[in-house]
Design a protein around this nucleic acid. Sequence first.
DNA 1: AACAGCACCTGTAGGC
DNA 2: TGCCTACAGGTGCTGT
Length: 274
Amino acid sequence: MPELPEVETIVRQLRPQIEGKTISALRLFWPRSVEGVPKEFRHRVRGMAVAAVARRGKYIGVEGADGTFFTVHLRMTGKLVMELGAADRRHLRLQFTFTDGTKLYFVDARKFGRLHLWPCRGESCPGLGPEPLRAETVRRVLKHLKTKRPVKSALLDQTILAGIGNIYADEALFLAGTHPLTPAASLSDGQQRRLASVIPQVLRQAIRRRGTTLRNYRTVADESGENREHLNVYGRAGEPCPACGTAIDKIRINGRSSHYCPDCQKMRSVTSDK
DNA sequence: AACAGCACCTGTAGGC
DNA sequence: TGCCTACAGGTGCTGT
């Protein structure tokens, strides 16, 4: 569910809530929410003094004063909340208790989310591409793409850029005027530039609105994000394009739905766009 | 290399 | 009301 802006929102809220606190106990209600051996996870995390909370791609990283490090990936429906609502009780998978008596709950209806003893921090995070929050970074990555796969698939590939998911990929491609099926390596200079400038904008704008809530996503304070009403194409199949009025189309690319305006996002050849 | 298909899971919306 | 199907913000695996 959550993409970079949602995870960033969660991290920003989580930080003041748990930094400086010490984990005194944890209860695991769905063992498979923990990657690896749950016993080892419990052993390492109990007693941990939380020194820092950070984000890398769609991962939340929690670092202890002694260097212990674990990540949380929320996948589709995971959330972290400080208060457990009545409706969330049945989806409670893991509960942290701090020495001051406060609690942090990991709630996950679909059970896809994972916690992992994994030192994924900063640039040293195996398997993840760079953060897409700066136009020059994105531009550099796009420039070196040699693959013919659809640009939409490339944007969703976390080893290329870390943090972009289905919503923001569609939104960025719309704003760049690029058809999602355009082969990644055939983007013209102009298209690369537009996409590179638009991706950080879309993500930062969403962060300012505390993310996009379609259904399950909630912040640590259990609020909805406010970005949904600002989406141009995602989830708007059949509705008029905000720019030209043409009906938004929805197709499937690599098993994921892709929303785009057939008029504003035409496939064009490299030569015609120079 | 890159795709499809499936697995992991549950909830919800829509058709009948 | 209930049954059935399709689909959902993600990722990882297998087979082709």
